[in-house]
Simulated scan of single mutants.
Amino acid sequence: MSSYEISVLLPAKNEVISIGGTVDRIFNLFPDAEVIVVDDGSTDSTASVAEKYGALVIRHPYSKGNGAAIKTGLRAATKDIVVCMDADGQHRPEDIGALLDKVNEGYDMVVGARDHEGQAGLHRSLANGFYNRFASWMVGHKIGDLTSGFRAVRRTKFLEFISLLPNKFSYPTTITMSFFRAGYSVAYIPITVLQRAEGSKSHINLWKDGLRFLLIIFKVGTLFSPLKLFIPISFAYLLLGIGYYAYTFSVDHRLSSISVFLWSTSVTVFLIGLVSEQITQLMYKNN
Rank of each mutant, 00 (worst) to 15 (best):
R151Y: 12
I19W: 08
N167L: 12
I6R: 06
F261R: 13
F130R: 03
F235C: 05
K52C: 02
V23H: 12
V49G: 00
A50T: 06
R254E: 15
S148T: 03
E160P: 01
R155L: 05
S234L: 06
K102S: 13
F130E: 04
P166L: 09
F179A: 08
R196Y: 02
V153W: 07
A69P: 00
F230Q: 09
Q119W: 07
A68I: 01
R151K: 12
T268M: 15
L271M: 15
A127T: 02
L223M: 09
Q119P: 00
L214W: 08
S163A: 04
C84T: 13
F249C: 07
N132A: 00
F30A: 11
A113C: 02
N128C: 00
R196V: 09
T265E: 14
I162L: 14
G121S: 09
G21A: 12
N167V: 08
N167T: 10
D88L: 11
C84F: 14
W263F: 15
H116R: 15
Y188L: 12
E160A: 04
D101C: 14
H141R: 12
S45W: 09
D108S: 10
L29C: 01
T174R: 08
Y245Q: 15
I26R: 14
T156C: 01
V111T: 04
N205E: 11
G199E: 03
L262V: 04
G54N: 08
F218P: 04
L56G: 00
S200L: 13
Q90H: 01
H253Q: 15
L165R: 05
Y171D: 14
L9P: 01
V269E: 06
S266W: 07
F179P: 12
Y237S: 15
V111Y: 03
I233T: 06
P11R: 14
G106W: 00
L126F: 02
P226S: 03
E160K: 07
P166Y: 09
G121C: 08
A127I: 00
F134I: 10
S256T: 06
V16Q: 10
W263M: 15
D86M: 14
